[in-house]
Amino acid sequence: MIQFDVNRRRVSVTEADGDMPLLWFLRESLGLTGTKYGCGIGLCGACTVHIDGRAVRACQRPVGTLAGASITTIEGLAGGAGALHPLQRAWMEVDVPQCGYCQSGQIMAAAALLKSVPQPGNGDINTHMTNLCRCGSYSRIRRAIHRAAGQLQSEGEPS
């Protein structure tokens, strides 16, 4: 058995299923469908989750490689039930989502960015935010990241 944590809960998977991408394990074995399938080749970023705090495209990580890892998905980003991460609040206030499908991946990518660069400039955002959005919500994603970064700074809240 391979064991790892998803949203602070221990999960296990058989060796035989080791080649299953984390994306499908989350979606089909755990029912965590906030992590989306978009391209299956690690390009679009709709399946972005955190593995040990770093943004990773879940379609490219077989679960067999995850023993002992700690994974956070969009469902676990904010901690407690009903709570929202500052990025989620900013996303709502700026009214970022259009179709909304890519947004959980965008938020997870942005959350990892804020951990490494708490006050990102537009250049940082360009470099780190490579997720695709077919609705073209990029300028609002940018605004929402700046807004959340500002709030995190003034509140001193841990991201």
Partner: peptide
């Protein structure tokens, strides 16, 4: 008025079900 999308909360929490998420 610029009211934000009514389903934003579910979207940003990853709980909105698209048909691909349905089981």
């Amino acid at each position: 008025r610029s009211h934000p999308g009514l389903e934003n909360r579910a979207i940003v929490r990853g709980t909105l079900r698209y048909s691909i998420d349905e089981s």
